[in-house]
Write a protein that binds this DNA or RNA. Sequence first.
DNA 1: CAAGTTACTTTATGCCATAAGGAGTTGCAA
DNA 2: TTGCAACTCCTTATGGCATAAAGTAACTTG
Lengths: 278, 278
Amino acid sequence: MVVFAGQGDARRSMALLWRTPGSGGARSGPGPKPGLTVDEIVDAAIAVADAEGMAALSMRAVGERLGRTAMALYTYVPSKSELVDLMYDRALAEMPTAYDLGAGWRAAVTAWAEDGWSFYLRHPWVLQVSQARPVLGPNEYVSLETTLRILRATGLEAGVLRRLVGALVHFVRGAARTIAETRQAPAATGVSDEEWWYARSALLLEVVPDFTERFPMVAWLGAEAQDQPGDASVPYLEREAKATFKVGLTVLLDGIEAIIGRSGHLAGPTRPLGPPGG
Amino acid sequence: MVVFAGQGDARRSMALLWRTPGSGGARSGPGPKPGLTVDEIVDAAIAVADAEGMAALSMRAVGERLGRTAMALYTYVPSKSELVDLMYDRALAEMPTAYDLGAGWRAAVTAWAEDGWSFYLRHPWVLQVSQARPVLGPNEYVSLETTLRILRATGLEAGVLRRLVGALVHFVRGAARTIAETRQAPAATGVSDEEWWYARSALLLEVVPDFTERFPMVAWLGAEAQDQPGDASVPYLEREAKATFKVGLTVLLDGIEAIIGRSGHLAGPTRPLGPPGG
DNA sequence: CAAGTTACTTTATGCCATAAGGAGTTGCAA
DNA sequence: TTGCAACTCCTTATGGCATAAAGTAACTTG
């Protein structure tokens, strides 16, 4: 039998994620009582990442917040990367798990997307957790199940549904990422967005005096943006990002409606809409 | 007059990006001749990032590729972050700058999105360059101008157009990111996707024996995915990601058509479609 | 030819994750 | 009751990172 590299570690991290008995809290045997729990460490780590960004998340920073050294954490968590996995899954628990389909799938998807949007803005670092080797934790699946329950109401077949979920998630994450990164930047660099843009656009015109001739469409769009009135209490970039989110979502939902119309005509009687008994 | 922090540095990096005279190549004055150019360094850095990912991009690695120490690079480039900006803008130069609108905007946007897709897969690290403080280099604007020239053909007004560009970019980047991260992972961890998934899903069923009952929709969608025949030469994840990209793009384009239809009816005669003389 | 400028190196500082090796605490078995 | 094994938590490497500081050598201009 082939034993893949790290399979032992994989078992431990799965146990941690799913809170298999014995992986979480108080022990019985000899030795000093644990002064911390995995949950406390995960919470502290989330607090650090929320406040100072993923880049500032170090084992030392988390340990300090709990009155320990960096190395103390390794008693509870195998490595930083497993800690990030735990943070990710724990944060995901904040996502709502039920949506009312009474007003139709479109309203439900809109609510879901808005919830995702505000979730990512609450925890911007989540967007930096790689999806390559996904965190197969309980809340990832709860969240996916919730999304699928909504989208099943479109009546589309499984293959299209699967890809639709992907496309929607790509869009929501991408839209949120813009603001998430924007919000990290001032804290990280000590320069506000206004200062930065003011200085940079002055420099741009200095270095590229013929900007308007070289990039007429860009200049035109920029000029039109100036004209818009706006609530000054919300920074311009945030207002614009939210507007992009709304427009994009409308477009996506309109597109889904179009596909539903087509598949209804083309495919005749629809395929089964879910698992037996769903 | 207020001098913002780092404005001097900002001027230098703008000069580097836009290749203002004196910022690039051979000098005249005393001292040894420069053995390198900024371009050579940027190319070497891109080569490192393409081959080993953004995480492996260190000043040492770039220097080594050029037979220098890490510190030698600081003669040419103010810091690593400026180097990344230069890499970003230089890579962006690969994006096509002209699209035929003869077959309509829909065909052109599709071609544009496909080009973006393959660009991001050629240079996955580009997706890790923060958009918070955008790299205001020439090729960013060339690329934006190109996109706008295509989308102007939709006849939509400036505000909607601006947000549409954002939404499309979010989607393309998001879709590409999935594969980009997937491709980095095996090299970074030494475990192939197949091995990883095989081990992980076995563990999942072991830790969560009641998976199908807890997540019926997820299980259903997973089962349906198994049934699909597929070209075995392309890894499953990549095939699926490409399919997500195609479905999502179709949905977006259908949605744009829907919006065009509505705005035509509601807004009456359209607003000017671009800059004067565009 | 001397002086100043510049390319490039070595060395040092202070971060980071984490391996290794204690030190002290606790429960259980002899 | 004693002593050992297990355990938490600490200190101290080790090797990576960006980059500051200072040194060396090459080159041009006065």
